[in-house]
């Protein structure tokens, strides 16, 4: 178990390093000059040269990369003399746009993204699992067919269409609530829910449809397993046969998928956040892309990769905990 964890953590570190290097290389190949970006519009040629020096952009790429990676763990001092700025652990550099530390920017935006992702996950699990289970247990009836047709339709809806439709109907036509704006949970929990409900629905619908179909297939498959027949032959009540013997194995692949999806969403749901102007990591990423704000893009890419590889590990651990046959090697 310890060996397994060690190996996996090493693997994670390696993966992140490779992703970091690739992102770094991509920016080096881009035609835009970070120094000019950082310096601003009315910048003289002399000043650009100075900024280049300060930022260490004249050094070889490998040195810059080394400095970047080392900086994440040990912090780094940028510039020299009177211009020296120390950037403490974990240092992802400073935004070209705002001059703020990337880490602080991301930390600032994380609560909104986490709120969106976790709330939406609760919603899509409730919807997806119940629809999928209902469909599986009423297989080939009109209930099943209705659910399956509905899920195909919903899964095909683009997020921006759902968002616009919801906003138009709920806010403009029905006037049920003002245009949502993000309120932190700590400030006003009720306001947090009220303002996030439309983004949650928007994000959850597609997932709910996919989860419903997956749950249905998984439950149908599991209920045909010999061990479910054994449970019936033992004389157990159908409720127990389904709930204890059928559902647990059926939900294992769903749990795996949930881990991956959540991992991906924690670092921001780009489109949904942008559509609702939620101050999340995804929105920050979209804005930074528009402005070619390299340090922020790098930081968020790494953060997202970190969440994804970590959730992968968590999924494996949970899987081993659910299924005693799984060996951690």
């Amino acid at each position: 178990m310890t060996g397994f964890l060690l190996r996996r953590l090493l693997g994670i570190a390696g993966t992140l390093l490779v992703i970091c290097a690739l992102t770094f290389a991509v920016f080096y190949l881009l035609p835009s000059d970070p120094a000019a970006q950082f310096c601003g519009k009315d910048c003289s040629a002399d000043r650009i040269v100075m900024v280049r020096q300060q930022m260490g952009l004249d050094d070889p790429l490998i040195v810059q990369f080394g400095r970047y990676v080392l900086g994440i763990f040990a912090g780094q001092t940028l510039g020299s003399g009177q211009y020296a700025v120390h950037c403490g652990f974990p240092c992802f550099g400073y935004s070209f746009q705002s001059g703020q530390p990337v880490w602080d920017l991301m930390l600032d935006r994380l609560p909104a993204s986490a709120s969106l992702a976790l709330g939406a996950a609760v919603l899509w699990l409730l919807l997806g699992l119940s629809a999928g289970l209902l469909s599986a247990l009423r297989r080939n009836t009109w209930v099943d067919r209705t659910v399956m047709v509905a899920t195909i339709g919903i899964a095909a809806l683009p997020v921006y269409f759902t968002a616009m439709l919801l906003l138009y109907v709920v806010v403009t036509v029905l006037g049920l609530m003002p245009y949502p704006r993000y309120i932190a949970f700590g400030e006003d929990p009720v306001g947090w829910i009220r303002n996030l409900i439309l983004p949650w629905i928007t994000l959850a619908l597609t997932f709910a449809a996919i989860y419903a179909r997956m749950t249905r297939n998984s439950v149908i498959e599991t209920m045909a397993e010999p061990y479910v027949r054994t449970a019936r032959a033992k004389g157990l009540r159908e409720r127990r046969v389904v709930g204890r013997h059928g559902l647990r194995p059926a939900l294992t692949p769903v749990a795996t998928m949930l881990g991956m999806d959540l991992g991906g969403l924690l670092a921001g749901a780009l489109i949904t956040e942008s559509l609702f102007s939620l101050p999340g990591v995804g929105k920050l990423f979209a804005d930074s892309l528009n402005k070619a704000d390299q340090p922020v893009i790098m930081g968020i890419t790494l953060l997202a990769s970190f969440f994804i590889v970590t959730s992968n590990l968590v999924v494996d651990l949970v899987y081993a905990w659910i299924d005693p046959r799984a060996r951690l090697t």
Binding site: R229, T230, A231, A233, G235, L236, R248, I322, D323, R325
Partner: peptide
């Protein structure tokens, strides 16, 4: 109520007939 209690079954492949979890 009879199943398992008064009529019990032994299935062919116990590896798949017993619950793995």
């Amino acid at each position: 109520r009879l199943r398992g209690r008064r009529i019990a079954m032994v299935f062919q492949d116990a590896l798949t007939a017993l619950h793995p979890y």
